[in-house]
Amino acid sequence: MNLWKDFSKGIWKENPVLVLMLGMCPSLATTSSGSNALGMGLATTFVLVCSNLAISSIRKIVPGKIRIPCYIVVIAAFVTVVDLLMQAYTGALYEALGIFIPLIVVNCIVLGRAEAFASKHGLLSSFMDGLGMGCGFTLALTIIGLIREFLSAGTLFNVLVSENYPVLFSVMGQAPGGFMVMGFILAGMNFLNMRKARKEGRDFVNPVDMDCKHCMICRITDEDK
């Protein structure tokens, strides 16, 4: 049951893009179309699961003071190896996802989950957390990507919705459109959460300890192990 919780929190309650605000750069830059967003999401999920497993398995032998550099080295090496292997053996997949793989090394969400979750939990929990966060990331990105693609080109996953559809607002496919769609989705999500909280008679709070403000990465000296 606990494992299910580890998995499901990433999808809505602690969605990395829409609640924790992690990985903003790829979620704005690669969501110009649904298929791009899906590709980025899947590639990130893959790396996230594997890096969570790797970090979780070495969490007991890494000294606290240098854990961040160690995590970065592990993740970067891991991603490079995956990149090389994909280039060599899975041509079609690399065509589709290849350009996103190098971007993932510096993706905040991978390091964020490594620090906030995988370094404190066991292998199985970390695996479920990575999978859940990855699914939530993919879901959020794909939704943003589909909205932007429909508004800017009238297509969904490169398939035209109807012939002679005139409303093509191409700015939605560019950076400003990404911010606008993201803003409206965030506003809508907060609205839903607030209404739910009001119905249950409690105050609405974002989950603390997990968002960027409370993440321990930037406070290395505070918590030396």
């Binding site: 890494v62 000294p63 240098i66 550099p69 160690c70 080295v73 592990v74 970067a76 090496a77 490079t80 190896v81």
Partner: peptide, 14 residues
């Protein structure tokens, strides 16, 4: 030395 070892292992794998 620990950090060096981690880097060395990562570099070897790569």
């Amino acid at each position: 030395i620990f950090l060096f070892l981690v880097c060395a292992v990562a570099a070897t794998v790569m």
